[in-house]
Design a protein around this nucleic acid. Structure first.
Lengths: 84, 84
DNA sequence: CAGTTATTTAGATATTTATCTAAATAACTA
DNA sequence: TAGTTATTTAGATAAATATCTAAATAACTG
């Protein structure tokens, strides 16, 4: 859960997650949406991957990122038990 | 949402939330549960308050903390929309 | 009132983090 | 193969954060 909360504790990363909810995107397409350098976006993607919130697949020159929502199940349950 | 994610991005604070789920507790009782100084716990409680995840009420010498789960509604919905 | 107890505030410090530029790696294309 | 494009890695830096000790504040108690 630690890496998941860490991943979500950043506005940019949450926006990336929201983008990937709509459709898979490669690193460059994601970076275009932000006024942040590509290396920084790459770093954010890495943190999202560490949390298993996104997966990546090399497609030729590009690296395509996808959202993995299954990992949110644990978070959902944690919140629900708090609400009893 | 920013302050909420920030509040939850810490093991100690999540544990405090879990403690308060069971019952209201004063600052000292909470601090007893951790190997962390009282000022540090006080600081964590402040961050939880900023996120509106807990409320506090002065009771004589003591300050009693309670969990506020209503604020989790937004988080829950955010996660659910990701899962579509 | 003086002393004790509960909690927070202040100030310091070490660690983590978000960001950048420059360079490296990898894959495509003429 | 040489050049171009896509992405990541490396290294640096400024800001945020978690923690501590010491001091301040507030409330109870004899």
């Amino acid at each position: 859960m630690n890496s998941l909360f860490k991943a979500l504790n950043d506005q940019t990363r949450r926006q990336i997650v929201e983008l990937l909810k709509e459709k898979d995107m490669n690193a460059g397409e994601i970076a275009e949406r932000f006024n942040i350098s590509k290396p920084s976006i790459s770093h954010h993607l890495d943190i999202l991957k560490q949390a298993d919130l996104v997966t990546s697949e090399k497609k030729g020159q590009f690296v395509e990122y996808s959202l993995n929502t299954t990992i949110l199940e644990d978070l959902l349950n944690w919140i629900l038990t708090l609400k009893k």
